[in-house]
Amino acid sequence: MARLLNFLKKDSLTNRLKKIKDGDSQEREIFIEEYIPFIIKTISNTTNRYVESENSEEYSVGLEAFNEAIDKYEGSRGTFISFAELVIKSRVTDCLRRASRHMVSVPISQYDDEQEQQIEAQLKTEDFTVAFELKDEMRAFEEQLKAFDITFSDLVNEAPKHVDTRVNSIQIAKFVATHQELKDELFRKKTLPGTKITKELNVTLKMLKRSRKFIIAAVLILDSDLELLKNYIYEIEGGVADGIQGMRGKA
């Protein structure tokens, strides 16, 4: 979307680039921020992998390359987008090549052989076990969903699209997860204790019915050890905390 808008006001793009080159650092920040999706897409296309987190090496290399592209761009080099894409691609591939060479040249590093091996072995095992555990957790999560006759594709299709509905649903899920007797009832009956929830929270049965699967999934996540997913839930709650509290106050 950001790209599209920029495409429409192409004239201002060159103006902005000129402004940035003249030393407007604030404008530069905004500009880069706007183009982050483009940077991620370009990196992802180059490596044919998803960028794993904001802290990954490729990501920072990509950002640097984009920054470099802003400085080096001239009107005669074609469109800025294609130029930037080229720069990012070449930098990222350079980075990947360097990384692979580095792996081969382990013995020539500044560490002792033994030290190096030790560190690496440690890192590897840790990484491996973490990955394995996560995978296992995910499997468990899926199994639990199956017990409620829910699949991931159901969730993709039926999860509430609207942000407010989603926030409400998560609110309900959190309520269920914190009340042991409700949770027990859910696991026993394999259905949400509708009447109790509607009594406690100001929600309708209809809404409960509609986002039943989503709520159950959220409850299961809160009940599990999936820290990352739990974090997502807390994040989303925190983001609209004021609104929800305001709602409670009214109730």
């Binding site: 979307m1 999706p37 991620i40 897409k41 992802s44 490596t47 044919n48 992998r49 998803y50 960028v51 794993e52 987190s53 904001e54 990501y59 990955a131 555990e133 996560l134 995978k135 957790e137 995910m138 499997r139 990352l228």
Partner: peptide, 17 residues
Amino acid sequence: KKDGLEEGKEIIFVQED
């Protein structure tokens, strides 16, 4: 799907993906 995808991994992706 892209290379190196695994369950439990956190990824960053854009609309086109």
